[in-house]
Amino acid sequence: MQMMDQEAVAKSLPRRIAINKIVRGLFLGSTLFGLVVLAVLLYDVISDSWGWLNWNFLTSVVSFDAAEAGVIGAITGTFWLMMITGPLTMIIGVATAVFIEEYVKEGRVRTFFETNISNLAGVPSIVFGLLGLTVFVRILGLGSVVLAGALTMSLLVLPIVIVSAQEALRAVPSYLREASYGMGATRWQMIRSVVLPAALPSILTGMILSMSRAIGETAPLIALGIPALLIPLPSSMFDSFTVLPVQIYYWTIDAALNDDLAALAAATIIVLLVMMFILNATAILVRNKFQKRL
């Protein structure tokens, strides 16, 4: 057996250690790259919108005159969309999760449901938009109204809601289930009065996070045919509507013609980001409260 050449090892050692140090620095730099991009992005948006984001902008309807234009229509539309999408996905999502977790035994049926859901989660959102256009707007004849948008959006976020609700249900300790069976509860009584209340905070957290994803979605709604310049505010779910990201889109693509439109788009982005921030902060609050209770 050949002995290790100690001299060669000692000679190469400083170089190897130096490489390790350099690489460590490079990798840290690459991790910070994300931070830098985030800062540049926020700086870009804030500087573009500087001076435009005021009360008038928040309370006015859209207009051909950039100085007069505002986003109250898009804000109202976004609220309408969320008011329908939220409860709808909550009910269907939780029901689906309960069915898969509590009623279906491990095996083929369960794998079938789970594979289907994970595949749906990977379908590009624009394809959901096309589904919505074909089924809700054209076949059911709804037109591009709040309800059609909300149904499309619900189908899009459903996989996310289901998966997070499943995780919430799985996290309920088994002794709670056993105890309620021990008290003579039926399966549905156990689910309704023990499992669901215990899982509710996590379900809500997942729900809020998925809404935060939904309010930023643009492509599926554009595919439904939302008008670029819509002045009347929606007052029922059968009214035409627009939402913040769609408004950003139309102002951005016209920004080449008119710099003011880029400013409007940037100001709308800030409104959208603030709404998402509020949603995420709420989700964190709900989660923290829940963690304290356990």
Binding site: L35, D44, V45, G216, I248, T252, I269, L272
Partner: peptide, 24 residues
């Protein structure tokens, strides 16, 4: 500290990235 910052990038709506690509 670093992980949440990297993950914030994933939460930004794609329309905002589009605006960023086009105007910056």
């Amino acid at each position: 500290v670093l992980k949440p910052i990297v993950e914030v990038l994933a939460g930004i709506p794609t329309i905002v990235y589009g605006f960023f690509a086009f105007t910056f």
